Amino acid sequence: MASELVEHYGVDCFEDTRLTRSPHGRLEFLRTQELIRRLLPGVRSRILDIGGGTGVHAAWLAADGHVVHVVDLVPRHVDAAAARDGVTAEVGDARQLSAGDESVDVALLLGPLYHLVEPAERACALAEARRVLRPGGLLVVAAVSRYMSLLEVGSEGRLTAEMEPSVASVIATGRYDGHAGFVDAHFHTADELHAEMTDAGVRDVAVFGIEGPAWPALDSAGLQEFEARVEAALRCARIVERDPLLINTSAHLLGVGRK
């Protein structure tokens, strides 16, 4: 998997624009900032951004006054992250971190979990993130919802008879086969993410829907309508961010907990 990801992401810094090139990406970015800022302690924190890519999130966290270090598998991502003001970075693997025990206040896993398709690999990454956290430290974990593919290809008119078995399979099993683009991955339900974090010894776990149910409508309207519609979409997401009946309609989930 590591070599596949380096090949997928390492040709250019396409990942750098993931959160800006589509309406739902922009919504994801705004809501992720909102949720993390809500959860962070009101003091300068030492943050380890595991799988932090090109440092898109590290940049605003550093601008907020935090000390941020990025770890990523892809050398080009690490170079881009290290070039950002106030951010340091190194090549590394979420399953075997170089950071010492109890050395950071906050650990972010905003990308690795869906790339680790085997349960044991995800458990290893969660255990490593917990290891480097100080007691009481904050763990923030992102996951892709199992229903993202269904809502994306269905709302875009791309759900064909040939694609239907793959869409149904990812909902049933979590194993995503790349049918709508992207690499093979694991997609979560909110309950599954909660269970994996709890099994890793994380306490006080809560799971939030990031984008809420309005993200497919934003994509259908296009970037030209984003500013006019985003406030309503944000309000929608906030209202149902913990609603068990609607949380999985978000394209992404955010699990949070404490060591």
Rank of each mutant, 00 (worst) to 15 (best):
G51M: 01
Y176N: 05
R31W: 01
A161L: 13
K259H: 13
V71N: 01
K259G: 15
H179R: 00
V240E: 02
H8K: 14
A125H: 08
T54C: 07
K259N: 15
R21V: 10
G212K: 07
G212L: 03
Y176T: 06
G92I: 05
S220C: 13
V207T: 04
V11F: 11
Q96V: 13
D93H: 06
G51I: 00
P165E: 05
A251R: 15
I36G: 10
W215I: 09
L5Y: 10
W60Y: 08
T17K: 11
G181E: 08
L35C: 04
R38K: 05
R122P: 10
G52I: 02
L108C: 05
N248M: 09
L110T: 07
V202P: 03
A206Y: 01
F29T: 08
D219Q: 10
A214H: 13
Y176G: 06
L138Y: 03
N248I: 05
T17L: 01
V43Y: 10
D204Q: 14
A185S: 06
R76I: 15
F14N: 12
G137Q: 01
I247C: 12
G136Q: 01
A180Y: 00
A221W: 04
L138C: 06
I210Q: 09
H188K: 10
A168Q: 14
R203I: 08
V207P: 05
G86T: 05
A123R: 14
A168H: 11
V91S: 09
C236N: 14
M148L: 14
G201R: 00
E152F: 11
A206S: 07
I210N: 07
A99W: 14
F187I: 08
A172L: 04
